[in-house]
Design a protein around this nucleic acid. Structure first.
Length: 543
RNA sequence: GGCCCCGUGGUCAAGUGGUUAAGACACCGCCCUCUCACGGCGGUAUCAUGGGUUCGAAUCCCGUCGGGGUCACCA
């Protein structure tokens, strides 16, 4: 077989040589130890939580080594491409503060010298390398009928499993030059497969950045390199792009672990050196049976990063939660550095989890409460307004008009040493403080308490004083005593039957009347903000 | 089915041959408190399992079990 002739037959139009290509991608001039990382999503229309997880690691590695973090869009599966998808990804990256050093906006700017950053724009590069491999006898054309879609594949697999065999070497590798010429003449489309040297028995070793040494069976499949539309598969593109673009560390999901041997063989055929790898676990959830299951696009809205924004989660909280999931050292570090930016979290000794974590909203909420409690009322207002502009438009007008009042409401139990921590997403603000913006919800008071409740309210009209917190409370206390409630907690505990209840009970009644709830922040602050007139109005509406 | 990854409380986990097996979230209780919170203190609960090696195993070795991934002209 004349491989050179075969290569020209298959790729008559490819004139670009790999030498010419490689000249355009010189080695990056970076200081020793600098790492180059990349985020390489396919544009499917959303930003995957798992992908974002990897961005955190990519960004950290690059920043802490004075390296480069770039974005490459893997749009080689044209069936799945969703328009505008890469904009969604860029929005999330920049929105969360992980703007890549190099990227390309479709129809817009390109930042960086190692582009194009869209794989479809690199088609000629892949073809040139494919031609080279064919001319060296390391790859061959395959004219078989294309298996299309998961259903086809599933069928093929089941058949193979039933027979206890897996098709390893493709029959097309034995085609004669005459047969190939005939096929080409007939206009048959072809894919390019690697001519695997593997025997399916030998093992190879490699070092995973988070799992250590892994021993795995070498590749023995004649995998597709170039599809019959001349676009590369992930495997081929990974080898070429990450080499040309100078990637030094590849962070990817653990679903890629089994294809490592294939990648090793492709790199070898191409004469390339492989980068370092870090395989990250997928993020899971429990299914109905209590087993772990992968987060799915259809069932789990939280797998799309935009979900968190929509829900009103603070971005910092989301990042901190994920950091916490990646590496529990983060939690200790955060405890010791309560006010540091999460970007300062030292990457050295970063122990990336190898366990498939379960997404835990409890923990996210807790971290979020903490983050939000540290903000000033002014910051809260800005974040809230910003969020409302995108996801709660009906509240924007009010927020803007009543800026001062809203800020004061936000400041209740805030900006003090032990701030209140009960808001974990912006949407809760409107729910939790609804009584500050309109009439309180009606509250079903228990029939047995109704009489006492109303009596307290009727009397309180004469004891309402808002001059100072002390005066306010002394008056509540005074009234409580006169109505038969305990004003001394210790005494109340000793003789609970002597009293109708304690001051706490009286406060509860007033709180219910004012807010329509049994729990709310500091009553005095609420009443002061509402104003005497409004407070009286609310009480009078009941008795 | 083959190959691979993973297995410490409900969740995230510290731990690398000798620990009363940290910590955080959640849950429960108590305390603090003028109410609601915050906070403080305490509690329930974990080394998947069997066999080795060893004076001694969560830790090393082998098997088993369980969960997950992968075996596409998808990434």
């Amino acid at each position: 077989m004349d491989n050179k002739k075969l290569a020209d037959l298959l790729f008559p139009d490819v004139k670009l040589t790999v030498e010419q290509i490689e000249k355009k991608y010189p080695k990056r001039k970076l200081k020793p130890g600098a790492e180059v990382t990349r985020f390489a999503p396919s544009p499917t229309g959303f930003m995957h939580l798992g992908g974002f997880f990897q961005v955190l690691i990519d960004y950290s590695i690059a920043k802490h080594s004075d390296g480069v973090f770039f974005l490459r869009i893997e749009d080689t599966d044209q069936k799945r491409e969703v328009s505008g998808a890469s904009a969604v990804i860029m929005d999330i990256l920049t929105g969360y503060g992980f703007t890549p050093d190099e990227y390309e906006l479709k129809g817009g700017v390109t930042v960086g010298e190692y582009g194009p950053y869209y794989q479809t724009e690199r088609k000629e590069i892949y073809r040139a390398y494919a031609k080279k491999l064919v001319s060296e006898g390391k790859a061959f054309p395959c004219f078989c009928k294309k298996t299309d879609g998961l259903a086809d594949v599933e069928l093929k697999r089941q058949k193979n499993f039933a027979q206890g065999l897996l098709e390893e070497k493709d029959p097309c590798r034995n085609l004669s030059m005459e047969q190939i010429e005939q096929n080409i003449k007939e206009g048959k489309k072809f894919a390019i497969r690697i001519k695997s040297n593997g025997d399916g028995k030998r093992k190879i070793k490699f070092n995973d950045g988070s799992r250590g040494e892994i021993e795995i069976l070498q590749n023995s499949k004649d995998a597709i390199l170039l599809k019959n539309d001349s676009l590369p598969t992930y495997h081929f593109a990974h080898a070429i792009d990450d080499t040309l673009m100078g990637t030094t560390v590849v962070v990817r999901g653990e679903e890629w672990l089994p294809s490592y041997p294939l990648h090793a063989e492709i790199f070898e055929a191409l004469g390339f050196k492989q980068p370092k790898y870090i395989h990250t676990p997928l993020i899971y959830k429990f299914n109905e049976k209590g087993n772990r299951r992968k987060l799915s696009k259809r069932k789990d809205p939280e797998m799309d990063m935009r979900y968190f924004e929509k829900e009103g989660y603070d971005k910092t909280a989301v990042v901190e939660y994920l950091l916490n999931l990646i590496n529990s050292n983060f939690e200790i570090w955060r405890k010791n550095n309560p006010n540091a930016d999460f970007r300062e979290f030292p990457f050295d000794g970063f122990k990336i989890t190898t366990v498939t974590p379960i997404f835990d909203f409890n923990k996210l909420n807790d971290i979020s409460k903490d983050v939000i409690s540290k903000l000033s009322a002014e910051q809260c207002y800005e974040y809230l307004l910003n969020w409302a502009k995108n996801y709660s438009i009906e509240n924007v007008e009010y927020l803007e008009k009543q800026r001062e009042y809203v800020t004061k409401v936000l400041n209740i139990d805030r900006e003090k040493p032990k701030p209140r921590k009960d808001i974990y997403k912006w949407s809760m603000f409107f729910e939790l403080f609804d009584y500050m913006f309109g009439a309180p919800k009606s509250f079903e008071i228990d029939e047995s308490e109704r009489k006492n409740y109303e009596k307290v309210l009727r009397n309180y009209k004469n004891y309402l004083v808002l001059t100072t917190k002390e005066d306010w409370f002394n008056n509540v206390k005074k009234m409580a005593g006169e109505l038969g409630y305990a004003t001394d907690n210790a005494d109340f505990k000793k003789n609970p039957n002597k009293y109708l209840g304690n001051v706490a009970k009286v406060c509860e009644y007033i709180r219910i009347a004012i807010t329509g709830r049994k729990n709310s922040p500091d009553l005095y602050e609420i009443m002061t903000l509402l104003g005497e007139k409004e407070v009286l109005r609310r009480i009078c509406a009941i008795v």
